[in-house]
Nucleic acid binder design. Structure first.
Lengths: 212, 212
DNA sequence: CTGGAATTGTGAACAGTGTTTATTATATGA
DNA sequence: TCATATAATAAACACTGTTCACAATTCCAG
């Protein structure tokens, strides 16, 4: 009844996450369940609970991997278009393209809500920090005089907007009907926002804000 | 076993939706269930299924009401700040404020995924259309020469961005740590984007786009 | 009035979910 | 060799949304 199967906890982890990821290539998250994963991975549901602690944490492990893939894409985009406007455009497009190619992974990543007020895992925080650092860096190249607070506000604003465009471009809950594609929106957003932002922070008599 | 209770189908509908909405003032959607609503409304689960067709459609009815409330707020914002930049700012702020005040309603509205490829209900499409019409109208006041396609792209871009800022301002999944509030981001987004957009479409030698 | 037919409502069952616990089977070390 | 720690699970629990046969009520024709 407890026939040993010679798998490390860590092996079971990667195995289960692998099954989950493979499923997410073709099917939405709600078609999965702990029991189905358990069956496909060859272990009982209780075993997976033992290994992960809960089904939620299994999903979270999958999200970790998704975030790693996404992070790799963004790093790649950064090395191919280092600095300035091109980098920001490359970031936005890479984000959008990843979401399109792995929409169910992406869906799971953002639909999954943290139970009550638990803190975000540190590895996730790290990825996020480096992303914003890259954005701020690109912005500061375009307007060296811009103060840190403005860089922070601008980077957050840009990324939240990119995320919003991405979210509504995938399942057109808001855009039902009008066939607007994501890429032109990304381009429009980045170009216009950055254009005005640079203009403001490169104006003669620099650091004062003209009124936010 | 089937004691008549003298309630119209329509009455049961509004009753159940009312219970649901009241619950959403304080608690997240996943703490609810068909059975709990049924108990609070004084009917059996099967009866609610009879009336609504499914639990999903009960949630959808609640979303309809949420969308009505949201629509009313936006209309109100429109009459208080008619036209131009101020209207766009008022829209964005009203959207954000509503999401903050009724975060669980808002959460349910956007986390709820349509089953497969079903079309969005027409009443929802109508609300959306009128919203975009208002945005396009405000934009065209700022740049009368802008062609329709550009108005459409800009309005969608702006609203997706507003939505993204709103989404990430509520549960800071991406912004964990850095305490950036929604309002300054909304202001930054609208002001910068619209500024550059107007500049482009009011340039001498108007309608050609300088490169999207 | 009376007696079928339509309406209204539900209890019980079904298949599914995540999680807990007691128990069994294997491996390890003294 | 035998106690002990580990690995794995079957079974039970408390849920979930949904289906269906059936009971209670109303309605309406004869």
């Amino acid at each position: 009844m407890a026939r040993r199967k010679d798998h490390t906890h860590e092996e079971i982890r990667t195995l289960a996450v692998g099954i989950l990821m493979e499923h997410l290539q073709s099917f939405p998250p709600e078609t999965l369940s702990l029991r189905k994963v358990a069956q496909r991975v060859g272990y009982s549901p209780a075993t997976l609970i033992n290994v992960f602690g809960s089904y939620d944490q299994l999903l979270l492990a999958a999200n970790a991997q998704t975030l790693d893939q996404l992070s790799a894409r963004l790093n790649n985009a950064q090395t191919r278009h280092p600095g300035g406007l091109e980098q920001l455009l490359a970031f936005a497009e890479a984000y959008l393209e990843f979401a399109r190619q792995h929409r169910y992974q992406w869906q799971l990543l953002f639909q999954h809500r943290m139970p009550d007020g638990e803190t975000v895992p540190h590895w996730q925080q790290q990825r996020i920090d480096s992303l914003f650092a890259a954005i701020e860096n690109a912005l500061s190249q375009l307007a060296p005089a811009a103060p840190a607070a403005e860089l922070q506000l601008a980077s957050r604003t840009i990324w939240a907007s990119v995320h919003g465009i991405c979210a509504l471009a995938l399942d057109d809950k808001l855009f039902a009907g009008s066939h607007i594609h994501g890429t032109p929106m990304m381009s429009s957003l980045i170009r216009h926002y950055v254009s005005a932002w640079c203009q403001q922070h490169n104006a003669p008599g620099a650091t004062n804000n003209k009124g936010n």
